[in-house]
Amino acid sequence: MTDNETRPLDEAAQAELKGVPEELIDSAGNGEELVKLREELEAAKQDILYAKAETQNLRRRMEKDIADTRAYAATGFARDILSVADNLARALESIPADLRDDEKFRNLVAGLEATGREIEKVFAGHGISRIAATGLPLDPHQHQAMMEVPSADAEPGTVLQELQAGYMIKDRLLRPAMVAVAKKPD
């Protein structure tokens, strides 16, 4: 049989045609037009389902992007303010012990220490935390080895000294800790 020839429908198909308008059933009574319309309808339903799924996936991705943007919006500013925190810490470390006890400088030192604590509090409030380094094995995801130091006391690859503090912002690296790492003595 060719496509142009008409084929009679089985009883189940004829039962489905009951109540269908006459114009949808061709003159031979086999309802090929109706079958074609049903196939097109099923294809359209599938297309709609795929479009809905794609829209939902897009919405989820956008929500995640928005959440990430909110969580990490302060990254650039945080990197910039780290140098201020470093300079403050260096200033505090450079004050000799005899000046710390001097009545004239005691208030200055107390003010600098209070400023350092406030910076740490603000960092913590924004999810910025200092990376632990000294005494731990070198982690290339958090530490940047600046030099190797021969050591008989520490295992090779252990961080002996922190040259510059490293920081994380939530679960992302903000700045690696610059460290000196132990190596086997020569």
Rank of each mutant, 00 (worst) to 15 (best):
T2Y: 13
N4D: 13
A13N: 06
A15P: 03
A15Q: 12
A15T: 04
E16N: 05
G19A: 02
V20C: 01
L24P: 00
N30G: 11
E33P: 02
V35C: 00
K36S: 11
K36T: 10
L37V: 08
L37Y: 12
R38I: 11
E42Q: 10
K45Y: 12
Q46W: 09
Q46I: 14
D47K: 10
A51S: 07
E54L: 13
T55A: 15
N57G: 15
L58Y: 12
R60V: 12
D68R: 14
R70P: 00
R70S: 13
A73W: 07
G76S: 11
R79E: 11
R79S: 12
I81S: 11
S83G: 14
V84Y: 10
L92Y: 03
I95A: 03
P96G: 07
R100L: 02
D101T: 12
F105I: 03
F105V: 03
R106G: 06
V109R: 00
A110Y: 02
T115D: 10
I119T: 10
K121Y: 15
F123T: 02
A124V: 08
H126S: 05
H126G: 01
G127P: 07
I128H: 03
I131A: 09
A132K: 09
A132M: 08
G135T: 00
D139C: 00
H141I: 07
H143Q: 06
M146Q: 06
M146H: 00
M147P: 01
M147T: 01
V149L: 04
P150H: 01
A152Y: 01
A152T: 12
A152F: 02
D153G: 08
A154P: 07
E155Q: 15
G157Y: 02
Q161S: 12
E162N: 08
L163A: 09
M168V: 06
M168Y: 05
D171R: 10
V179N: 01
A180G: 07
V181N: 04
A182P: 04
